[in-house]
Simulated scan of single mutants.
Amino acid sequence: MLDAVKFQAKIQNGLIQIPDEYKQELFEGDDIQVIVLVKKKSSSKKDIIDELTVNQIQVNGVLDREEIYSG
């Protein structure tokens, strides 16, 4: 039988601290399963799609948006 607990923690010196309220349920030598979901910090770095949206490139022989949608 699997019981699940969910908590947020920061990694410190390569270790994840288990909150005190869960320590009484977990014992030395217990087999546990750990799933780590990392909350990524938003980046101001633009990807290629962002860059091309701002700085469109013209290619000869290819219709642009106006040509595609006009009549």
Rank of each mutant, 00 (worst) to 15 (best):
E25Q: 03
E28A: 14
K45A: 05
D3Q: 09
L15T: 11
D3F: 08
G61Y: 09
P19I: 00
D47T: 07
G71E: 05
V36E: 02
I49Q: 05
D20N: 14
D31H: 08
K46Q: 08
G71A: 04
K6P: 00
N55V: 06
D64M: 04
L2D: 03
L15P: 05
G61T: 09
Q12V: 15
Q17P: 00
G61H: 10
D47F: 11
I18C: 06
I11S: 13
D20R: 14
L26V: 11
I11G: 06
E28D: 13
L52Y: 12
K41E: 15
L52S: 07
N13R: 02
S44N: 11
I11A: 14
A9R: 05
D20L: 12
F27R: 00
S43T: 15
V54P: 07
S70F: 08
E66Q: 02
M1P: 03
I57C: 00
K41N: 13
V62Q: 02
F7D: 01
I32A: 00
E67K: 08
Y69W: 10
L2T: 04
E67M: 05
Y22I: 01
Q8N: 15
R65T: 15
N60H: 04
D64C: 06
F7I: 01
K45Q: 02
F27G: 01
R65S: 15
Q33D: 01
G29V: 09
K23L: 10
K39V: 14
L2A: 05
I68C: 13
I49P: 03
S43F: 15
T53R: 11
T53F: 14
E25N: 07
V62C: 00
E28W: 12
E67L: 04
S43N: 15
Q24I: 07
R65L: 15
V5I: 14
L63K: 11
K23D: 06
K39Y: 12
L63E: 09
A4S: 10
N13V: 05
D64A: 06
M1K: 03
Y22A: 04
D47G: 11
V36D: 02
G71M: 04
Q8S: 15
K45N: 01
D64W: 05
T53I: 14
E25D: 04
V5A: 13
V34N: 03
Q58A: 13
I16E: 02
L37Q: 05
T53N: 14
E51H: 13
P19T: 01
K6R: 08
G29P: 02
V54E: 15
N55E: 05
D47M: 08
I49Y: 12
Q24N: 10
S70D: 05
K41W: 13
A9T: 08
S44M: 11
D31E: 04
I48K: 09
D20F: 13
N60C: 00
E67Y: 03
G14V: 08
Q17W: 06
E21M: 10
I57V: 09
Q12T: 12
I48V: 11
Q56L: 08
K39F: 14
K39A: 12
N55K: 10
S70Q: 04
D64Y: 05
K23H: 05
S44F: 15
Q33T: 00
I48P: 01
L52F: 12
K23V: 11
S44D: 10
S70E: 06
D30L: 11
E67T: 04
S70C: 06
K23R: 14
V38I: 14
G29A: 14
V54A: 15
E67D: 07
D30K: 11
N60W: 01
I18Y: 06
A9D: 01
E51D: 12
V38W: 08
D50C: 03
